[in-house]
Simulated scan of single mutants.
Amino acid sequence: MKCKIKLNGINDVKEFVNITFKAENDVDLICGKYYIDGKSIMGIFSLPLDQPIEMELADEDAKMLKNQLEKFIVN
Rank of each mutant, 00 (worst) to 15 (best):
K33E: 15
D26H: 01
K6N: 05
D50W: 06
G9H: 02
L49E: 04
L47A: 03
E60P: 02
I36D: 06
M42Y: 12
K33Q: 13
A23E: 01
D50Q: 05
N18G: 05
K2F: 12
K63W: 10
L65S: 09
Q51N: 12
K39Q: 00
L49S: 08
K6Q: 14
D61L: 10
G43P: 09
V17W: 08
V74I: 15
A58W: 12
A62C: 09
L57V: 01
S40G: 09
E24K: 07
D61V: 05
T20G: 03
M64E: 10
G32H: 09
I41H: 03
V17I: 14
Q68A: 13
N18D: 08
K14T: 05
L47R: 00
A23W: 00
M42S: 15
E70S: 12
K39H: 04
L69P: 00
N67V: 02
Y34C: 08
G38D: 04
I53N: 05
V13Q: 01
E60N: 03
S46Q: 12
C3L: 13
D28R: 06
K71G: 05
K39A: 04
L65W: 07
N18F: 03
K22V: 02
M42P: 00
A23Y: 00
N75V: 08
V17N: 13
M55T: 02
M42T: 11
G9A: 15
G43T: 03
T20S: 05
L7C: 03
S40D: 07
F45I: 07
S46P: 10
K39F: 05
L7T: 02
V74Q: 06
P52L: 10
F45L: 15
I5F: 13
N25A: 12
L69M: 01
M64Q: 11
I30F: 09
V13R: 02
E60D: 09
M1E: 09
I36M: 06
Q68V: 01
L47H: 02
L7M: 07
A62G: 06
F16L: 12
Y35H: 12
F16D: 04
K2L: 12
K39V: 01
V74E: 10
G43F: 10
D37M: 09
A62T: 04
N75Y: 11
K14W: 07
K22N: 08
K71V: 01
Y35I: 15
T20Y: 00
L29E: 09
F45D: 09
E70D: 12
V17T: 05
M64C: 02
I36C: 06
Y34T: 10
L57R: 00
V17E: 10
D59K: 04
K2H: 10
V17M: 11
K39R: 01
S46E: 14
L57D: 00
Q51R: 15
N25G: 00
M55G: 03
M1G: 10
I53M: 06
I44L: 08
